[in-house]
């Protein structure tokens, strides 16, 4: 009799990272992949199953009831400044609660949750190495982070509530590549804004390195919170110079109000609070993940930046709900 294959469930499989992770997993001979996402998965490998449903729907529970799932990769978190806080809360927090409850109810031994390094937030008095034990201050100036911090802390409560589940919370530095996120979008701008007189240290993580870290965290025995760092911390202006693009320098007293107006007029996709990322440092300490899993960055900062620039148009990874779909009740 053939050995039973490992069954991996990926939420948010339609996103760029979900797709990369699915491709990596489906190449492994003894792994089956099921993805959950309302968004489409373009150029999907044929042996990957894709359920186009909402995590919060009952059909999702049927999956866990009928199949023995070995590992859940929970990448289906939304961070879209255009969506309201209410939608963020129900999608992210209720979705995560749902996933963790399925894990507990149907005996899934491993859950990997992709949180974000942004939970710490950029601050002028951040230490140069922010450890996993640092307070999550990311929302003190950026209300749009509140739900993600709530998700992170909710997931942490499972460490002690259900110790039989190996729960892993990953807090990656800015993931850069074909993904649609603030940093990759920033690097893809034709002209990059900088704040006059500010040059914070930044870390960027190549998307393939992020996927490797997710896989490393899924190994048996790994549990807890882990920062995932970029290859090096470097000054923002050095990072920007790697794109070879022109910049414009704006005084920090002017840009926030300008950015707020542009965001309101839908001329820019950056909420003003995100400007803190080009003003203050938030660099993570990656020692714990390196020690526990021997994971390390395989891509240089230059390669990460080039990956972001190459994929200036990416069709599948918009972390935004398709219009017209029914809201979960």
């Amino acid at each position: 009799m053939a050995k039973r294959k490992t069954l991996a469930v990926i939420t948010g499989i339609g996103g760029r990272l979900g797709q990369l992770l699915a491709r990596r997993l489906h190449r492994e001979p003894d792994t089956r992949v099921i993805g959950i996402d309302r968004r489409p998965f373009l150029r999907k490998p044929s042996d990957v199953e894709h359920l186009r449903i909402d995590i919060r729907r009952k059909a999702c529970e049927d999956l866990f009831r009928t199949r023995r799932v070995d590992v859940i990769y929970h990448l289906g978190l939304m961070h879209d400044p255009r969506q309201g806080l209410g939608e963020h809360y129900t999608w992210n927090l209720l979705g995560t609660k749902q996933i963790l409850e399925f894990a507990q109810r149907y005996g899934v031994p491993k859950v990997v949750i992709l949180s974000t390094g942004d939970v710490y937030g950029p601050q002028s008095d951040n230490p140069a190495y922010i450890s996993e034990d640092a307070p999550l201050l990311g929302a003190q100036r950026f209300a749009g982070m509140r739900d993600l911090i709530a998700v992170d802390m909710f997931a942490q409560s499972y460490f002690w509530k259900f110790p039989e589940i190996e729960t892993v919370v990953l807090r990656p530095a800015h993931i850069v590549g074909g993904v649609r996120n603030a940093v990759s979008n920033y690097l893809r701008l034709p002209r990059l804004p900088l704040l006059l007189g500010f040059d914070p240290m930044v870390q960027v993580l190549h998307e393939e390195d992020a996927v490797s870290a997710i896989l490393a965290a899924a190994r048996p025995g790994v549990r807890g919170v882990f920062n995932v760092v970029g290859a090096d911390a470097l000054p923002l202006r050095t990072l920007v110079s790697l794109t070879g693009k022109p910049t414009w320098e704006v005084p920090h007293v002017v840009l926030p109000s300008l950015a707020r107006r542009l965001f309101q007029l839908r001329l820019a996709d950056f909420p003003a609070a995100e400007l803190d990322y080009i003003r203050y440092s938030a660099t993570l300490d990656g020692e714990r993940l390196r020690t526990v899993t021997r994971w390390s960055n395989q891509y240089t900062v230059e390669e990460a930046v080039q990956a972001a620039l190459r994929s200036s148009v990416f069709d599948g990874g918009v972390e935004r709900l398709p219009a017209g779909l029914p809201r979960a009740s």
């Binding site: 140069a128 190495y129 040059d199 240290m201 090096d232 911390a233 470097l234 000054p235 050095t238 440092s281 660099t283 240089t300 900062v301």
Partner: peptide
């Protein structure tokens, strides 16, 4: 120092 000429604290 990293290949970018600074340490983690930004010393160049």
């Amino acid at each position: 120092l990293s290949p970018h000429g600074t340490d983690a604290f930004g010393f160049a």
